[in-house]
Simulated scan of single mutants.
Amino acid sequence: MSRKNFAYSPYQTRYIMLQAILFYTPRWLWKNWEGGKIHALMMDLDVGICSEIEKKQKKKLLLDYLWDNLKFHNWWAYRYYFCELLALANVIGQMFLMNRFFDGAFLTFGIDVISFVESDQEDRVDPMIYIFPRMTKCTFYKYGVSGEVERLDAVCILPLNVVNEKIYIFLWFWFLILFVLTSGCILYRIIIILSPRMRVYLLRLRFRLIRRDAIDVIVCKSKMGDWFLIYMLGENVDSLIFRDVMHELAARLGHRHHLHIHPSGLGGGKEIQEA
């Protein structure tokens, strides 16, 4: 294995701080764009313990908002999806930045460590020691007895690199896990955007108290952004209250409980509207 010189130590702390800021950026963007909408619409309905009059008033307010702002939530939802896409780009970008930071040795760092563990003891070279040496040659300069600068060579122990190698092997596998999970999340979002039937299925799967025909009507007459808001509200509002609001919203959208449901599962045989 060829010899390499790494000059990362003086910048390591600043680089990790930069990574933390970059990872926090998508969350910061969404918190500002979301503007507390979900919390405001919840109106403490997540607990469900309040008087019937107060509960009825809050349900009406929530229902009126959903009705008045139907089909106006796409931009709100797409900004959330953009933050998820930004998180994926952040993971990929940081892996390549880290690779440049370590002079091309980071992208294969985890694979090299696994290969090192599985290889013969006589032939293997520890990639962690290769990147994070524990001993190195140090050169010191000091004034001698004659007043001239003398050069002294010595062997230095670098105990901190024992910690560094563990940190960066963890980061390598952590980046890999984040990449896989975030890529799966992006694929999931693409399917949701392109497939209204998947939105119906997810609502039915998650909120079993809501009648299927009501879900069909809501998805049919709303857009993808409305679906996203409804799903988020359902995750945060009391299930019984959410069921009542969804049934009333479906009724406003023209749903009748005795309406014949097409065998495909979509109310009245209508095609579900695309986002």
Rank of each mutant, 00 (worst) to 15 (best):
M224G: 14
S222K: 10
V219K: 05
M232T: 06
I230G: 09
I241A: 02
W227I: 03
Y231E: 12
L233I: 10
M224A: 15
G225P: 14
D238T: 04
K221P: 01
D238L: 02
F228Q: 14
D226M: 08
C220M: 03
S239C: 03
K223F: 13
G225Q: 11
I241V: 13
H247G: 01
F242H: 01
S239D: 07
S222H: 11
V219Y: 07
V217H: 02
V237K: 00
L229K: 02
Y231D: 14
F228M: 09
K221H: 04
K223M: 08
K223L: 12
G225Y: 11
I230M: 12
E235K: 14
I218Q: 00
S239K: 11
W227T: 12
Y231P: 05
E235D: 12
E235L: 09
L240E: 14
G225H: 13
M232A: 14
M224V: 12
V245D: 08
S239Y: 06
N236W: 15
D244P: 02
D238Q: 10
W227M: 14
V237L: 00
L240S: 05
G234K: 14
H247A: 01
L233G: 06
I218Y: 00
M232Y: 14
F228R: 15
G234N: 08
L240C: 06
D238I: 07
V245Y: 06
Y231C: 10
K223I: 02
E235P: 02
N236D: 06
E235S: 11
G225I: 09
S222D: 09
F242G: 02
L229Y: 01
S222N: 05
R243N: 05
L229E: 01
H247P: 03
Y231S: 09
F242A: 03
I241K: 00
E235T: 07
D238A: 06
V245W: 07
V219N: 10
R243L: 09
S239H: 07
V237Y: 00
G234T: 10
D238M: 03
G234H: 15
V245N: 06
D238H: 12
S222Q: 13
V217A: 08
D226S: 13
D226K: 06
K223S: 12
V219D: 10
V245I: 08
R243I: 03
D238K: 06
V237H: 00
K221F: 05
M232C: 13
L229W: 02
F242I: 05
M224W: 14
K223N: 10
I241W: 00
S239W: 01
F242T: 08
S222G: 11
K223G: 08
M224Q: 14
C220V: 05
S239P: 05
V237E: 01
V217I: 05
V245P: 13
L233R: 08
V217D: 05
D238E: 13
K221E: 07
M246D: 03
G234I: 15
H247D: 07
I230N: 08
N236Y: 14
L233E: 06
V237S: 01
D244A: 12
G234Y: 15
K221L: 07
L240A: 11
N236E: 15
R243G: 02
D244V: 01
H247W: 11
F228A: 10
L240N: 05
D226A: 11
D238R: 01
S239L: 05
K221S: 11
W227R: 11
M232I: 08
L240D: 07
R243Y: 04
R243E: 08
Y231Q: 15
I218P: 00
E235G: 04
F228E: 12
